[in-house]
Design a protein around this nucleic acid. Structure first.
Length: 939
DNA sequence: GGAGTCACG
DNA sequence: GACGTACGTGACTCCG
């Protein structure tokens, strides 16, 4: 069978160990049903292998393939340097038993499974890649590990499996600033904290790349180190020369490993169907077993009879999706039969098709229902005939029940408290039905169930959930309505096509619900779902439908004023620049500023463009003395940009959002959009209306109350700092809040030993930045940049802060540790925020750590205001008042003048007591109130 | 469609 | 001792 490996052959090398960790962290925990053995990582690993074997890669298809593993943690590198990879955390408890299983899996797929004592997987990969290259073949290394990048070139390339992106010499250069042949030199200098490669202290990747570009390689550099002008670099290199040499030996892969097999033995072979099916079946991977069985054309083995334990999920029969089985309901007889079935079942999955994503404008085109997996119907009510006639095809297509008749028949059912309505993003459908006078209740929402269980792991759109949990890819909407300019509305879709698509959505939703229902309980997030997600739907519906009155004339006048000012500024900009260019183009601006005018300090980012953000331009404006032309230009552009932003995003775009019928602006809140539990506002975003700048704040004058009514704003004072004080248990902070002190001034006083009555605004400002920094997972670099002070000074501040408030440091350490062990962090109310990147290596881990520190604080604050919002309608029911907007720590109400005095204390009490009784906070929450005819005045 | 920029908490 | 850095969002404009 085997032939020699040579020209025309293509070897795929899979970095197996990396895959296991990725699969483990990327996927929700999964255990084998029969005995509870953790198998999540094995399942993910098998899926990856199967995809690798079956996906069509055209000319990149493998002829030879192998999976390479690390044998153990000790390798020859530990003899060179005992600390190498010494600080690797132990793998999690439930991952360890899965390591041997992945080997078994690889063999079951009939793929060569390689590992060698004393060597890392990377060395074996290096050796095989060299052999293949020398034999004239091609190699694809499936990994995104930067340690492998030194191998790229000469027929060897890498493939990042997550991004599906090829990594060739250009990408390596982009990453390291040098070609593949110099990667080890750069790594030797910069070191690697994750692997404990020491490198030269004080030299990071950027400096390392510069040095290697100049000197060629590590050895030359070390010999000529005395020529380096920068004192720090020079000294570090001279002092640490030996350490750098060791580092190079650590990062240099060994491509001469003695292997006792030839490349030809890695030839790609079809898996042995029986062996593979046996393994998958033993692992109890139902869906993958079925997929593999389909593909190999063998019968799936009978599922072993499972002993039903108390908490095991009721078996969901795996039933293929069949679009031809869906029914079009075109007469009342059929509809009534469906209604009877729904009453019989007690629940129904439900979805609507409409003409718009904007619920305030959308018209119902059809409704789909599903009670049993695989059996669903679609009721067309608003489909139009083809667009052939002169009037744009506006005639109704034949054989459709009239909308009002369908609504009349469904209304009792949709409002029946004994019938559960299940949807995916039900707020959308519920709003549309509410406009037709139907209040859908009670409800379950699969999107929110997923959010409660898996926030932070993946998004919660139906296509993604279906793919992940049902292994099924629903018909993409684009195949029906197209995209871009030629996109049509759903009413133009032929009914036959619509039935397949729409009924499938209800079918998918029902299956997801059946799957999620028991999962929710096992993930211990039922309370979160029941108290923080689901009850928010009707509350947000009412807020969104109420909308807020926005005065078009005010916006329009401001827009004109902005346009005039911008034109003036633009002319000035061109004059200072000495040539015309597009002020709105950062690329052109950067070139004018740093290339043409030669302003010093221009820095190009990864895309090769100069950065021209506000902070950079602000720095340029300080060059008044040395470069007046650049300073002037930067100042003008900053002004221009502020106006451009205000005009395009606010004064212009906001007018487009004023609803024709209501004369008001209706935002849409996304409940599951932000991982921390915050809401997100879209179309338009009313959570980022300007307030910080004088000029911008005037936009809020356009947000008004109608005659006889008032806008009332209530916002939590320092809620995140208060929550931090409670969670981290900081007595000094708590006391300050109890005493009603200015918290930033108090911090400053503690830190700098300045009495409160001698506090300067500048010292207070610095303390405030530190307080916020703590909430964000502070770092010396970040604080230094924010305050524009030297890094060492910033670090000094942080050290002193931790000294004064030791609990903060403990909180941060404990939170990160918890995230690393469990894969998630929690809010005080039990919301889980998953942190899949927390054990990643590289800079991603830094991000993940800071996010993990921030999430319980931001998330708890988000939970608090959610609780207040859920209780608010009941509390203010007797008043002529409506809750209109939420801006993270603020609620905005519209109230009849005569009820203002009643509303404020009631709403305040609800907000201040929102954590009770679930959580007893050791810090009081305080709410401040404002009122006025406009939002500007109320704030 | 991604990157850059900037508005908010 | 240092990786590269503030946390969380959405909308608009340019440009390939």
């Amino acid at each position: 069978m085997t032939s020699t490996f040579g020209k025309g052959c293509h070897l795929h090398l899979i970095d197996g160990s990396a895959y296991i960790f990725r699969a483990y962290h990327a996927l929700p925990p999964l255990t084998r049903k029969s005995d509870g053995l953790p198998v999540g990582a094995v399942a993910g690993f098998c899926n990856i292998l199967w995809n690798e074997l079956t996906k069509d890669k055209g000319s990149d298809a493998a002829t030879h393939i192998a999976v390479v593993f690390d044998h153990s943690s000790k390798t020859f590198r530990n003899e060179i340097y005992p600390l190498y990879k010494a600080q690797r955390p132990e793998p999690p408890e439930d991952l360890r038993p899965q390591f041997p299983l992945t080997r078994t899996a690889t063999k079951a797929f009939n793929i060569a499974c390689l590992e060698l004592e004393n060597f890392e997987a990377d060395d074996i990969i290096a050796t095989l890649a060299r052999q293949a290259r020398e034999a004239g073949g091609r190699v694809t290394i499936i990994s995104s590990d930067k340690d492998l990048m030194q191998l790229v070139g000469g027929g060897v390339e890498m493939l990042d499996p997550m991004k599906n992106r090829k990594i060739g010499p250009d990408e390596v250069f982009e990453k390291f600033g040098v070609g593949p042949d110099k990667v080890v030199d750069v790594q030797a200098l910069s070191g690697d904290s994750v692997d404990n490669v020491p490198g030269a202290p004080g030299i990071g990747p950027k400096t390392a790349a510069l040095l290697i570009q100049e000197f060629g390689d590590v050895e030359t550099l070390l010999e000529r180190a005395h020529e380096i002008p920068q004192q720090k670099r020079r000294e570090s290199l001279i002092e640490n020369a030996e350490q750098v040499r060791i580092s190079k030996r650590l990062v240099q892969l060994d491509d001469q490993v003695a292997l006792d097999f030839g490349l030809e033995t890695l030839e790609l072979q079809a898996p042995d169907a029986t062996k593979l099916m046996d393994f998958l079946n033993e692992m109890e991977f139902r869906t993958l077993t079925r997929r593999v069985a389909d593909k190999l054309g063998v019968a799936p083995p009978e599922a072993p009879a499972l002993t039903e334990t108390a908490e095991a999920a009721p078996e969901t029969p795996v039933l293929p999706f069949d679009h031809t089985a869906y029914q079009a309901v075109r007469d009342m007889g059929a509809l009534n039969q469906w209604i009877a079935e729904i009453y019989e079942a007690g629940y129904v999955a439900f979805d609507s098709e409409t003409t718009s994503l904007n619920e305030m404008l959308a018209e119902i085109v059809g409704i789909s229902l599903c009670v049993t997996p695989g059996k669903a119907c679609y009721i067309p009510v608003g489909h139009k005939t083809g667009g052939d006639d002169l009037f744009g095809g506006s005639a109704l297509a034949p054989d459709q029940l009239p909308l009002d008749q369908v609504l009349a028949a469904l209304k009792p059912l949709l409002e029946d408290p004994s019938i559960l309505k299940i949807g995916q993003n039900l707020k959308y459908d519920a709003k549309i039905f509410a406009r037709q006078g139907v209040r859908i209740a009670p409800i379950d929402d699969t999107m929110l169930m997923s959010y409660a269980m898996h926030g932070g792991i993946h998004n919660h759109g139906m296509d993604e959930l279906s793919d992940r949990y049902l292994n099924h890819q629903p018909i993409p909407i684009k195949t029906l309505i197209g995209s871009g300019k030629t996109q049509v509305t759903f009413d133009k879709v032929a009914i036959d096509e619509a039935v397949k698509y729409a009924a499938e959505d209800a079918d998918v939703t029902l299956r997801l619900w059946q799957k999620f229902k028991p999962m929710l309980h096992r993930a211990k997030v039922t309370t979160v779902y029941e108290t923080l997600e689901r009850p928010l739907i009707p509350v947000l519906m009412d807020m969104e439908m109420a909308g807020i009155q926005v005065d078009r004339d005010t916006l329009s006048r401001m827009s004109n004023a902005f346009a005039q000012k911008m034109a003036g500024l633009e002319a000035e900009v061109q004059e200072v620049a000495g040539q015309p260019f597009n002020v709105g183009s950062p690329k052109q601006l950067g070139e004018i500023l740093f290339d043409v005018l030669k302003v010093p300090g221009g820095e190009k980012g990864k895309t090769g463009a100069y950065g021209t953000g506000a902070d950079i331009l602000e720095d340029v404006t300080t060059l008044e003395d040395t470069h007046p032309q650049g300073a002037k230009l930067a100042a003008l552009v900053l002004d221009w940009r502020q106006l451009a932003k205000l005009k395009s995003t606010y004064t212009d775009a906001l007018q487009e959002h004023i609803n024709r019928d209501t004369g008001r602006v209706h935002t849409s809140y996304s409940i599951s959009g932000a991982v921390t539990g915050r809401l997100a506002s879209t179309d338009p975003n009313l959570q980022n209306i300007p307030v910080r700048s004088e000029e911008g704040r005037r936009i809020r004058e356009a947000f008004v109350a109608p005659k006889g009514r008032v806008l009332v704003s209530l916002d939590y004072s320092q809620i995140e700092l208060r929550i931090l004080a409670h969670i981290a248990d900081i007595p000094a902070l708590k006391q300050a809040f109890r005493d009603g002190h200015d918290i930033h001034a108090m911090t400053a006083s503690e830190m700098f030993n300045v009495p409160l009555d001698q506090m300067t605004s500048d010292v207070r400002r610095q303390a405030k930045a530190i307080n916020f920094g703590v909430i964000y997972g502070i770092s010396g670099f970040g604080l230094a940049r924010n305050l524009r002070i030297p890094r060492a000074e910033a670090q000094g501040f942080i050290d002193r802060y931790f000294e004064r408030f030791p609990g903060i440091k403990d909180y941060m350490t404990a939170t990160v540790k918890g995230a690393q062990e469990r894969g998630y962090v929690e809010t005080l109310f039990g919301r889980k925020i998953h942190t899949p990147d927390i054990n990643a290596k590289g800079p991603g881990q830094g991000f993940a750590k800071r996010a993990a520190i921030n999430a319980p604080i931001q998330g708890t604050a988000a939970d608090v205001i959610r609780r207040a919002m859920v209780r608010m309608p009941g509390a203010i029911a007797g008043l002529d008042a409506k809750m209109l907007l939420q801006v993270h720590d603020e609620l905005l109400f519209e109230v009849a003048e005569e009820d203002v005095e009643k509303l404020i204390p009631i709403a305040k009490e609800v907000m201040e007591g929102a954590s009770d009784p679930a959580v007893k906070l050791s810090v009081k929450l305080e709410v401040e109130a404002g009122r006025g005819q406009t939002w500007a005045a109320a704030h």
